[in-house]
Simulated assay, not measured.
Amino acid sequence: MSQAEFDKAAEDVKNLSKKPTDDELLKLYGLFKQANFGDNNTDKPGMFDLKGKYKWDAWDANKGKSKETARQEYIALAEQLKAKQ
């Protein structure tokens, strides 16, 4: 999968007519961060930052996954979400 295909999938997700569920959004977020930045090496947010904690966990769940694999999984999930529209 090319960077252009990944970028197009990311753009398509922004333009979905039906908003993905919170779980789908977190999965997209985690894969997007892994595909662009690799393993999460940031400090985990504090317990009062729930949104930050969920996002951190979503990214950390992809630890060890290659950027290419994360791109492929992101594109596949974006295609699934587009098909549900």
Rank of each mutant, 00 (worst) to 15 (best):
M1K: 14
M1G: 15
M1H: 13
M1N: 13
S2N: 14
Q3F: 10
Q3D: 13
Q3E: 03
A4H: 12
A4E: 15
F6C: 02
F6L: 03
F6R: 02
D7P: 00
D7F: 01
K8F: 00
K8N: 03
A9N: 03
A9W: 03
E11R: 07
E11P: 01
D12N: 09
D12S: 01
V13S: 07
K14C: 00
K14A: 06
N15M: 07
N15C: 02
S17E: 05
K18I: 10
K18Q: 11
K18A: 04
P20M: 01
T21E: 04
T21P: 02
D22M: 10
D22P: 05
D23N: 10
D23V: 06
E24I: 03
E24T: 03
L25C: 05
L25Y: 09
L25D: 03
L26V: 06
L26T: 07
L26H: 11
K27G: 09
L28I: 08
L28A: 00
L28Y: 08
G30F: 14
G30Q: 15
L31I: 13
F32T: 08
K33V: 05
K33W: 12
Q34E: 15
Q34P: 11
F37R: 12
F37E: 07
G38A: 05
G38T: 07
G38M: 08
D39P: 02
D39N: 02
N40V: 01
N41K: 07
N41F: 01
N41R: 10
T42N: 09
T42V: 10
T42S: 14
K44N: 07
K44M: 14
K44T: 04
K44R: 04
G46W: 11
M47I: 06
M47V: 06
F48N: 04
F48W: 14
F48R: 10
K51V: 11
G52C: 08
K53N: 09
Y54Q: 14
W56F: 13
W56G: 06
D57T: 11
D57V: 09
W59C: 15
W59Q: 14
W59S: 14
W59R: 14
D60H: 09
D60E: 15
D60L: 08
N62I: 00
N62P: 07
K63G: 10
G64W: 06
S66R: 00
E68I: 04
E68M: 04
T69Y: 08
T69I: 07
T69G: 01
A70R: 06
R71V: 07
R71S: 12
R71N: 11
E73C: 10
E73S: 11
Y74L: 11
A76C: 06
A76E: 15
A76Q: 15
L77R: 12
L77C: 11
A78F: 10
A78M: 12
E79I: 00
E79G: 02
Q80C: 06
L81I: 12
L81A: 03
K82E: 13
K82M: 11
K82S: 15
A83P: 00
K84L: 10
